[in-house]
Design a protein around this nucleic acid. Sequence first.
RNA 1: CGGGGCGUAGUGCAACGGUAGCACGAGUCCUUUGGGAGGAUUUAAUCCCGGUUCAAAUCCGGGCGCCCCGACCA
Length: 495
Amino acid sequence: MDDDSKNIQKKITPRAEDYSKWYSDVIDAADIADNSAVRGCMIIKPYGYALWEKIHTIFDEKFKKLGVSNAYFPLLIPQSFLAKEAKHVEGFAKEVAVVTHHRLESDGKGGLKPAGELSDPLIIRPTSETIIYDAFSRWICSYRDLPLLINQWANVLRWEMRTRPFLRTTEFLWQEGHTAHRTSQEAAEFASKIINEYKDFVEQDMALPVIAGYKSESERFAGADQTLCIEAMMQDGKALQAGTSHMLGQNFAKAFNVSFTDEKGKPNFAWQTSWGVSTRLIGALIMAHSDDKGLVLPPKMASISAVVVPVGQGTAEYDNVLKYAKEFAQRLESETGLAVKFDDRELRSGEKYFYWEKRGVPVRIEIGPRDLAKKSVVYVRRDNGQKSFVAEADAAIKLKELLADIQTSLFEKAAKFRKDNLRPVDSWGDFKQTIDAKPGFIKAHWCGGAECEAKIKEETMATIRCIPFDVEAEAGKCVFCGKKSNNRVIFAKAY
RNA sequence: CGGGGCGUAGUGCAACGGUAGCACGAGUCCUUUGGGAGGAUUUAAUCCCGGUUCAAAUCCGGGCGCCCCGACCA
């Protein structure tokens, strides 16, 4: 009984059959997030927020290179704005929070009641197309004002029926980009540039392979002509949409009168795009790489690259070890330009190992009396636990090499997992059996019909995640109805 | 919004309608210290309102909250 309770509290073992429990265990263990008092909202703790800051920094740089400027628009949007684009309102109406009053007064029973009813209710942005394009309509007059490339970092709020930490919280942080262009082609090219940046980030920095492609019509953003997306496979085989870029056509331009005069003096509606990634990426990161011990951070995402743990407490030399380890950490930090943490807390060294493993720090550096004598230190990899002895003189080079290697191996491990769980299927019987029995994605032919798509979803819970950009032309028959199909698409159960 | 489950120290669990207990944590002291250490000692709890009863953590009604599973979704 003692052992059991010990295990329950200390172990954070993933259980494939109970993924969300495992997920929250990892989050708690790593001290990343917490529930808030508000339903479905989440408090992101400092260690978790550092991951968001990383994402923020990397994307700011990418966007800058594309000529995108940051700006900020109001949290509150007039309700009437939402109604202007028919499909958009249909998509978001059922999940917007509405502000109807502007003050509180006593209800005479010791409580408060809303007062000061607004004549025009405001909604809390679920996304900002409407209020941004209202501004665009005033900012854009001539073809010389185009392209207009804007991004905003913001919180948005969607009253979803069901929430999951990081993957779907009521309030979440994201960046939303909004652009206006002269031609359809230019807008389409921009939308695909963005999805490539997203893919690049998730694969290069988060070490997670994704499939980039088009959404089917039913999975498109409300109000878009085309949605491009990247889809990642989590460790339980489920799909997670990690980023989207929408080709909005002239739908919003017409609704909000985003128009310009062209070179010949003729009026035209602008062609627009919108695109975003959110704190969901942190969820993807946690779910993609974590193991029985907790988080595993790819080096490029880690706010602490390495942690120096002094060992040998209680020995005569420990004071020297502390002094040496501290200097070592400082020197390593300045030589590599990486964040190297020195952990001199009064805890047993074993406890510190577990502490930093839970938090996913890529490399642990152990320094004790024996190392002091040998002028070397011990590097321990978080991803596979491998230990290596490193001479003091090589410390900086070896750390950089090790981090690069961890980054690559994490990607390769995830890529192998995805490859092993991406299955071609050619008959409806196989499809149903495979989706039930085996985790992962299915590559199957699809006729392009919304009816087949809907019925497949109804019977199996699987949806079309995307029609990959790099799909090979291949004559085949729709896995559901048997009609002609020219290529395979990706099906999966999704978060 | 439908279906299911659960509310007891900070956390995880126990207690037939009859003295609320265990483990972990936290505090203090001693011994330890190259992978979550040991001993001593201290600390702290029945979600809210009502009912049944000599007696309620336990039974009943209502409320509130949380978790899981669906529908919806980044």
